[in-house]
């Protein structure tokens, strides 16, 4: 009798192991709205860009207007025109530098979110005993009601793990 049971167990256990070693699929295409960190980051970037434009626009507009007037009133005064053109170029360079710093800060923040997504995928794997968590782009087809879809749970865990990401702008001098 016990032999029979051992045999039954031997047949049964690998099947159980295989059945539980499942795969999960997550769809990150809506990450910029579903992740609170990314949605916040997007709003922060937008605000920073607007502020940046606001900071430089008045100066640039004034200098361009001055240059225009100078060209009309004293076309021969090249030195003064050149001085204003140089100022315009300096302001534009400063704005570009700020934009670059913003882009770098954005990149660093996105990397933080990416890292959190990787960690959350690991958590999902552990939680469900799945052998892999695939991005939907890595698949050729997923049945819409597939039990493998774990997008909701991923965002739930991600928003707990990283509710917000900070946009850290490097100092202007560094």
């Amino acid at each position: 009798m016990s032999r029979l049971l051992v045999l039954l167990c031997a047949c049964w256990l690998p099947w159980v192991a295989q059945a539980t070693a499942r795969m999960l699929v997550v769809d990150l295409s809506e990450a910029y709205t579903r992740s609170t960190a990314l949605a916040g980051l997007l709003a922060d970037i937008d605000a920073e860009l607007k502020a940046l434009a606001q900071r430089h626009r008045p100066t640039l507009e004034r200098l361009r207007s001055e240059l225009q007037q100078l060209k009309q009133q004293a076309p021969a005064d090249r030195d003064q025109q050149l001085a204003i053109a140089r100022k315009i170029s300096d302001v534009e360079a400063a704005a570009e530098l700020e934009e670059e710093r913003l882009a770098q800060a954005n990149q660093a923040a996105i990397e933080q979110v990416d890292q959190a997504i990787t960690e959350v995928k690991g958590m999902l794997k552990k939680e469900t005993g799945a052998r892999a968590v695939l991005d939907i782009q890595e698949t050729q087809y997923v049945r819409p009601d597939c039990p493998c879809l774990a997008t909701e749970r991923l965002y739930e865990l991600l928003n707990q793990r990283l509710p917000k990401v900070e946009l850290r702008l490097a100092d202007a001098e560094s």
């Binding site: 892999a132 695939l134 890595e138 698949t139 997923v142 049945r143 493998c148």
Partner: peptide, 24 residues
């Protein structure tokens, strides 16, 4: 691919390389 998957009542279709990577 969807047509074949639906006919086979499949949950997932993966590229061979991906399947190999995830042990399927």
């Amino acid at each position: 691919i969807s047509e074949v998957a639906l006919a086979a009542n499949a949950d997932l279709v993966l590229d061979r390389e991906v399947a190999q990577r995830v042990g399927a």
